[in-house]
Amino acid sequence: MEITSGWSGHVSRETGDEATVHFRPPRRRYTPPSALMTLSRFAPMIDMSFLLLIFFMTTTRFAKPEGLLTSEMPKYAGGSGSGPAVPLPESPIIIRLTPMGPGPEDYAIRIDGFGQAPTRIDGLSEFLRGVQQRPGFDRKTPVIIMAHDEIRWDQVVKCWNAVLVAGCENVAFATP
C-alpha cells in the first residue's frame, strides 16, 4: 500500500505484522557550487594566512640588533681644556690610537711600555690576556684608551670592545 502524503517525498508502508515506514527524499539535481561559494569556504584559511604573514613580517628582523657598551665617565673638573679631568692611575695600560694616513683603516695602536704589542686591533685581546698573567697586572688593572682626534669612531669602539673581550674591567678614555 502506498500513501501519498503532503510531503514532497513518498512514504511506503508494508502491510502485515511488521510495518516499516520508509522516507525517500526527493531527488535533486546536482548543481556544482558557484565560485563565490567555493571562495567563501576558504575565507578562514585566507584570514589565518594573512594574520600569520603579518605576524612574521612584524617579528622578523634581518638587521643585527643594536646594543650598548657601558663605561664610567670621570667627574668633570671644569675648564675648557680637553685634557683628562681626573689624575691618571699609577700603573695603567695605556693604549694609543694614532692615524697613519687619510683612510679609515690607516691607523696603528701602541701600548706604552710594551714594545712587542700588536699594532692592529686584531691581536689586541689576546695580547691583553697575556699581560693580565704578568705580575702586577690583572683584570682590574686600568686600561686607558688614548685616541687621536683624527681616528675614526669605528676604530675607537673596536679597540674598546677588544679590551672588554680581553676581560678588562676598568676601561677609561683620555686625550693624548
Binding site: K64, P65, E66, G67, L68, L69, T70, S71, E72, M73, K75, V157, W160, N161
Partner: peptide
Amino acid sequence: EVLHVAAIA
C-alpha cells in the same frame, strides 16, 4: 658618570 655607547650587538 655612566655613559652608554651604541654599537651593533
